[in-house]
Amino acid sequence: MRLNHHRVGHLLSPYLDGELLPKEAVAVQEHLLECAACREVYDRLRATKALLGELPVAEPPAEFWTAVRAPRGFRFPLTARLPLRWPALRRRVAWVAAAGIVLLALALAPLIKGSLDRLHAAEIGVDLFVREHALQMSTQPLTDRAFLGVVAGDSDLVLVGEPARPGETAP
């Protein structure tokens, strides 16, 4: 595996960290042996990493330990105090409520629809019954006042001797 300068430049950092595949590492190693420029770059990288690695571990101040050990002002939130029951209970209540609403809707739908139908039927029912009866039961349509009344009402005619609208005087 031969490597060019540019490629090696990108591999030096992972090479330093031991993050290359074995064959890549060998190739970088070989290149470094014969290339002084890359060796120089590599040495700088190595020195940089070494400087950072030698930084002393920052020692936490004494009050840090007391504060960390006993988290001050910490109260269990409600959800933490009842970690199992509370969310589970809430979830269960939500499910029951949702199911209740669905059931209620299913039960009420035909009831509401039925009563609306009945109300509607009651409105037109009487009128319809009278009309049907008047039209079907008439044996002599031309002299039957009920029959003529329905026909006249439908076509907005006025029977002789009767007012056109309630309260008006007969023509």
């Binding site: 920052a58 936490p60 101040p61 009050e63 840090f64 504060a67 960390v68 988290p71 910490f74 939130p77 933490a80």
Partner: peptide, 15 residues
């Protein structure tokens, strides 16, 4: 800031 940050981190662990 280092103190605040790490204290807060451990508070989260505590919770």
């Amino acid at each position: 800031d280092a103190k605040d940050l790490s204290q807060e981190a451990f508070l989260r662990v505590y919770r």
